[in-house]
């Protein structure tokens, strides 16, 4: 590791002051499961490292006025163990309980996962599927935006929109009405634990009282630089009465989209397009089961 100065502020304001002062020469530890390894291998060589673990005001999971508010420093383990998340937001429960290993889930945080914006970030894929909002703070002020905007535009050039002096502090989204909305995450990996996602699929579906799909969100993690957006598949579902048969009709579109997006990497196309369809069949079954529409036997 290159030498650096180390700070462990206990408040967000303190952290923001330090980030403002040191700007580009700062690396921030949210969980450390990426950064400490990068430091150790001389891949990251910051002059200053700021540890956020001591900032208690960033570590919370709560529901306020029908909105889930999750502090950036909530660990994967705490999200996986949270009863409200488990009952209301299966996609986040299933994504966080499968990250890394128990040891990694005890260290890694949802804020770190999103700020890192790794191709294979499971927490990121779940939040993108939910179209969650992220709150960013700096000494210059606070801004809240959809996570899709966070990853898009100017952000796409440099992994996301975060400025050097800016901290991701909160993830928020409306509490799903589980009578009408089901969410699911499925991870395809090479082994059960300690695995990086080969494909991490996320899905959110809302139906009306007649079982007609009014909203669909389908995303595939690790298929491209960011969780892939299957917009045409979603459009096909909206307005239709939800069924396994209707959902299966989206798969040829998904197949073509993955094929097109991965043309530059032909070696991975074959298993990615096959794998993604397998992943989404699992998600369809899960969603239909949660909504009590259909029992799918595979």
């Amino acid at each position: 590791m290159k030498p650096f100065d180390f700070y462990a502020p206990t408040t967000v304001d303190e952290a923001l002051e330090l980030m403002h002062k040191y700007q580009d020469s700062v690396s921030v530890i949210a969980g450390g499961t990426d950064l400490v390894l990068e430091l150790n291998e001389y891949k990251a060589t910051p002059a200053v490292v700021i540890d956020l673990k001591k900032i208690k005001e960033l570590n919370y999971i709560r529901v306020e006025d029908g909105v889930f508010r999750i502090g950036a420093m909530a660990t994967h383990a705490s999200l996986a163990a949270d009863q409200a998340v488990k009952e209301k937001v299966r996609i986040l429960h299933d994504a966080t309980r499968q990250v890394g290993s128990p040891q990694i889930r005890n260290l890694g945080t949802i804020g770190g996962n999103i700020a890192q914006s790794s191709v294979a970030g499971d927490g990121l894929a779940a939040c993108v599927t939910l179209n969650a909002d992220v709150t960013l703070r700096s000494v210059r002020g606070t801004r809240t935006m959809s996570i899709n905007d966070f990853l898009a535009g100017e952000g796409a050039q440099k992994r996301n929109i975060l400025a050097a002096d800016e901290l991701l502090t909160e993830i928020s989204f409306p509490v799903p009405d589980t009578k009408h909305t089901a969410t699911a995450f499925y991870k395809l990996a090479k082994r059960k634990s300690l695995a990086i996602s080969v494909i991490g699929g996320g899905m959110v579906v809302t139906v009306d009282d007649n079982g007609v799909c009014t909203h669909a969100s389908m995303r595939g993690g690790a298929l491209g630089r960011y969780p892939m957006h299957f917009a045409d598949c979603e459009a096909l579902l909206v307005g239709k009465k939800l069924s396994y048969a209707a959902m299966l009709e989206t798969l040829p579109i998904m197949h073509d989209q993955i094929l097109e997006a991965n043309r530059s990497r032909p070696w991975s196309v074959f298993y990615k397009k096959e794998g993604a369809q397998g992943v989404f069949k699992k998600l369809f079954a899960d969603i239909l089961g949660q909504l009590g529409i259909e029992e799918v036997q595979e």
Partner: peptide, 23 residues
């Protein structure tokens, strides 16, 4: 040295963590 093998596990405030991922 990258949090994959678990050999460096210690109990940290009651929870197992890989000490190679902690400064």
């Amino acid at each position: 040295s990258e949090g994959e093998c678990g050999a460096c596990t210690v109990i940290f405030n009651g929870e197992p963590v890989t000490s190679c991922c902690v400064l």
